[in-house]
Design a protein around this nucleic acid. Sequence first.
DNA 1: ACTAGTAATCGTAATCGTTCCTGTTTACCC
DNA 2: GGGTAAACAGGAACGATTACGATTACTAGT
Lengths: 138, 138
Amino acid sequence: MTLDEAWRILQGRQFKRTKNRETILEFFSENDRYLTAMEVRNFMIEDNPGISFDTIYRNLTTFSELGILEETELNGERHFRMQCDHGVHHHHFICTACGKTRNIPHCPMESVSVNLQGYEVEGHKFEIYGKCPVCVEQ
Amino acid sequence: MTLDEAWRILQGRQFKRTKNRETILEFFSENDRYLTAMEVRNFMIEDNPGISFDTIYRNLTTFSELGILEETELNGERHFRMQCDHGVHHHHFICTACGKTRNIPHCPMESVSVNLQGYEVEGHKFEIYGKCPVCVEQ
DNA sequence: ACTAGTAATCGTAATCGTTCCTGTTTACCC
DNA sequence: GGGTAAACAGGAACGATTACGATTACTAGT
């Protein structure tokens, strides 16, 4: 997702264009990996030393709900990254050291043979964890 | 996993047979679903009003490491359940209302076509979330 | 451009799940 | 039964996240 696409979504829903939102989106568009609220804060604090976690979490949640960011949970912490390939369903290999991901186009839901009649499926998660080639060397 | 199997594992590693451990294992063997530390506490508190969270978490973590319980994270909280079909790799449909699960024998790792050469795979997670037939009716 | 109205923010305190700490109790081996 | 290390209770501390009242800053309408 590009910055322009993100702003188009936000302005289509009457969200205002603020400096904080610009900084957050800039950070994600320049860092193509899963990031924590703390990492976002450490970046923002240079421009805005008084930045509040309330602001960060509120915006991250908003962006996630609007499909601008995607979200996952790694060792008890929320992680966010810019939505990639918007619209096309996929999964990720996630590096547990740096947060970088690699797309996995195959979705296991297509080949699940279990009969889930009577069940109401709300979602699914398929992630592979490990170290990317760069972090293997460290 | 039966209570006998669990105790055989524990005693093989010189873990002591305490009242608290008996209560925890009894609770899991009678409740075939994912449970939180709080639910465990609410059950234990009847026998032992002074039960400490430290004791609960310490034992849940131990049991999980020994393969007696299996663990997953649902909306930011650790959930535990008795290890089912010990040894046989499988995945779960998980009811987000009651924590009950249904086994999914198919493992997506077998059909992942992405080349992960140079990567170090540490683990994976495949879970389907939704409502079980009982909770759909509520 | 000016102003009103409302969304967004700041700063701080509170919450929640989980872990740490210290002194005491308990299970197990002899 | 006595010694010893494991297990425990109670409470304090922790890190991530959320809630809150007061203030600031966008944006639309004049």
